[in-house]
Computed example of a mutant assay.
Amino acid sequence: MSRPTRRFIAMQACALATLFCGCFTDPRELPNAPLETSSGQAALSSPDLVVYGCPPGAVGVVGATFMGIPAYCQPSGGGYYQCDELGNRFMRDVYQHPNLDNVVTELADAMCPNAAAMPEYSVWGPGYRDTTGQAPLPGDLVVFSGELNGLAIAHVAVVTGMDADNVYYMQQNMNDPTGSTGWDAKKSWFSKSKVLCWIHPEPVASPPPSNLPDCGCFNGEGDYCGLGIVDHEAWYGCRANVTSPLSYDNVYSCSNGVFSLKSTCSNCVAQRYTSALGYCADGNPCGHVFRYSNGTYCGASTDNGFSGADANTLYTCTDGLVTATSACSRGCTPQKGGSDKCD
Rank of each mutant, 00 (worst) to 15 (best):
R6L: 14
I9Y: 12
A10P: 09
M11W: 02
A17G: 15
R28E: 10
L30V: 05
L30I: 03
S38A: 15
S39C: 04
A42L: 12
A43H: 03
L44D: 09
S45T: 05
C54N: 10
P56I: 03
P56S: 13
P56D: 11
F66N: 07
A71S: 15
C73M: 09
G78E: 06
E85L: 14
Y95I: 01
Q96S: 15
T105L: 11
A108N: 04
D109E: 13
A116G: 07
A117C: 08
M118W: 02
V123I: 11
V123M: 02
W124G: 02
G125T: 11
G125E: 03
R129G: 05
T132Y: 03
P136L: 05
S145M: 03
L148R: 15
L151P: 00
I153H: 02
V158F: 11
M162G: 00
D163V: 06
N166L: 01
M170K: 06
N173C: 08
D176R: 10
P177A: 09
T178K: 00
W183R: 13
K186S: 15
K186G: 13
S188Y: 01
F190T: 12
F190R: 08
S191L: 07
K192Q: 13
L196K: 12
I199M: 05
I199E: 01
P201Q: 06
E202V: 12
P207V: 14
P209C: 15
S210L: 10
G220Y: 09
E221G: 09
G222M: 04
E233R: 07
E233K: 04
V242C: 01
V242K: 00
T243L: 10
L246T: 10
L246Q: 02
S247R: 12
N250I: 00
F259S: 05
T264V: 15
C265D: 08
Y273I: 10
L277P: 03
G287W: 01
V289C: 05
R291Q: 11
R291P: 00
Y292G: 06
Y292M: 11
S293M: 03
C298Q: 05
N304S: 12
F306L: 06
D310F: 06
D310Q: 14
T316I: 03
L321D: 13
T323G: 02
T325G: 01
S329D: 10
G337Y: 07
S339W: 02
